[in-house]
Design a protein around this nucleic acid. Sequence first.
DNA 1: CTGAAAGCGCTTACAG
DNA 2: CTGAAAGCGCTTACAG
Lengths: 346, 346
Amino acid sequence: MKPKKNRASGRPTLADVAKRAGVSEITASRAMRGVKTVGPELAEAVKQAAKAVGYIPDPAARALASKRSRSILVLIPALSNQLFIGMYEEIQKALRAEDYEIFLGNYHYDARQEEKLIRDYLVYRPSGVLLTGNEQSAAAAKMLKDSGLPCVYMMDLLETPGTISIGFSQEEAGAAVARHLIATGRRKLAYIAAQLDPRAKYRGQGFQREIARHGLEPAIELRAPIPSSPGLGADQFRSILGEYPDRDGLFFCNDDLAWGALMEASRLQIDIPERFSIVGFNDLPLSAHMAPRLTSVKTPLDEIGRHGAVTLLRLVRGQPVESACCDLGFELKIRESSLFSGGAAP
Amino acid sequence: MKPKKNRASGRPTLADVAKRAGVSEITASRAMRGVKTVGPELAEAVKQAAKAVGYIPDPAARALASKRSRSILVLIPALSNQLFIGMYEEIQKALRAEDYEIFLGNYHYDARQEEKLIRDYLVYRPSGVLLTGNEQSAAAAKMLKDSGLPCVYMMDLLETPGTISIGFSQEEAGAAVARHLIATGRRKLAYIAAQLDPRAKYRGQGFQREIARHGLEPAIELRAPIPSSPGLGADQFRSILGEYPDRDGLFFCNDDLAWGALMEASRLQIDIPERFSIVGFNDLPLSAHMAPRLTSVKTPLDEIGRHGAVTLLRLVRGQPVESACCDLGFELKIRESSLFSGGAAP
DNA sequence: CTGAAAGCGCTTACAG
DNA sequence: CTGAAAGCGCTTACAG
């Protein structure tokens, strides 16, 4: 033993693997990474040796030498909104199956927080970035561009050339809700939203556009400067009763608002759907179990997450990607809350 | 310019900062880390220089050299259960405020997944670990112990010497629910659970213990081998009606089960609380807005998250910690679903 | 209180 | 297809 400064971690290193396999370190490195130029039997011997000594690559050393880490930055506007949980679960499953670690950034619908997360996590040199929407700040967009990292945008369908996006049309979904309400005889509509999500705005626009197309009066719009919640929905329902008692069809931009409205209606003994048709959005698990069961738009969040992750991984590997703008559609789930007996079929 | 192999990232490094500040690299390093031995004016000069050149420390180089990264591993049993979201948000806030990155591991109540997450993330050399419960596998427990990392256990109160835990007594909470039901005249009780959470078991035990103490017949128990959901709660409520129609007080181990039961009751036009008192657990945001409003146990999840993160950070810094086992209590929120007119005050 | 040297564990960039 | 050398950007361990 030479008297040498020892700062080693004690864990087996590539040198240990190489020695055991009787090859050089660099060959061991290539074998472990699956680089093709290594002879198959040598590669196998190295892997055996790695297993024998219990070798686990050090991600820090890897990142320092290669300027790249086996991780993906995932940016999600909120965790409190249940819809993104399912999306994240699918992302997680797809990414971890390929041994990518995740840096999860939750920015609370705040572009500045998103920017800080991007700044903070880019120094970890992730292999790619999965974003929700494209309302990034100019500075954030520049950092992403300068990084040269592959990015996939979830939720919105982007027209920008060179961007890969996966989602569905919020406007079409809003329009579908309008068509359903109109087809079931509703004429006095309302669009009721919290103030969080830029996508809720597109939904409202699609809703209004379809109403206009039918030559009906525009829906009144309610908006609150606070996050979506059942309590807010209950309050908004009472506002409708007080200020717009002539309404007959209420489209809530989120299921949780609609839940609150249904509960408040029950408390006030207002018949749903007789007095009001009520429609939610996202079709969260509880909605199908409400009393009355809530009509909602089932959005392909889980598929967006899965497909987004898989697509990003293809980009990371330099593999071809099918399409630049992938529309996964949506499904209107018509249930009791919007099917009053006097109405026609949708 | 010497003809030298260039593998640099192009980003400013500590060498750039040192040169600009007219000090050695190591002094710059110490100044950036806030090591006390650096003279105050020198430290200031280095920080100015860092800002001027736009220096950001490379976490990979840091981790490689120091064998420690400025990150915390956070292990949570599930994201789909809303209660852990609030807890995680608080953890996130506390940790990011101190510039720690988070490795979030979601193990779906599966000890093997938890073990894999620990194995995978320990190689990143986090500074500490925040765990939920202590049902880790033996291998996982050994890895944690061998790592020597500070750990904080959230949710359960652990007796094991040397462990730091923050939570509340599930048994006490279960007992409190029993006391309330009994005090309001209920005698035929049921405990209704999904099969996910070991803590639900303790709740049930506390519930039964209190019932026995009052000399009443044990609560019947319903259990399902699937995750908690409103749909399951609705099914379980129908089972009670069919198989145990004599029951008068139902304690659901999770609010979402209770929501499903309330909805099903409404659908079947069964009066709550006249026919059944219904109590949930965790007091999720919707519960106070149900019709009828749901009695539930408000658990200090957010506080557990915050306190857990802060305590772990103290351990990481080697600062003293107040207590080894911190009980944050709970609060029974009595609402309409368990207050039938014939009942006495709790 | 400050610094020159060495080292962390990998991969890149050349050679052959 | 395999390897010797150098380097990634920081911090540890000694000195003084």
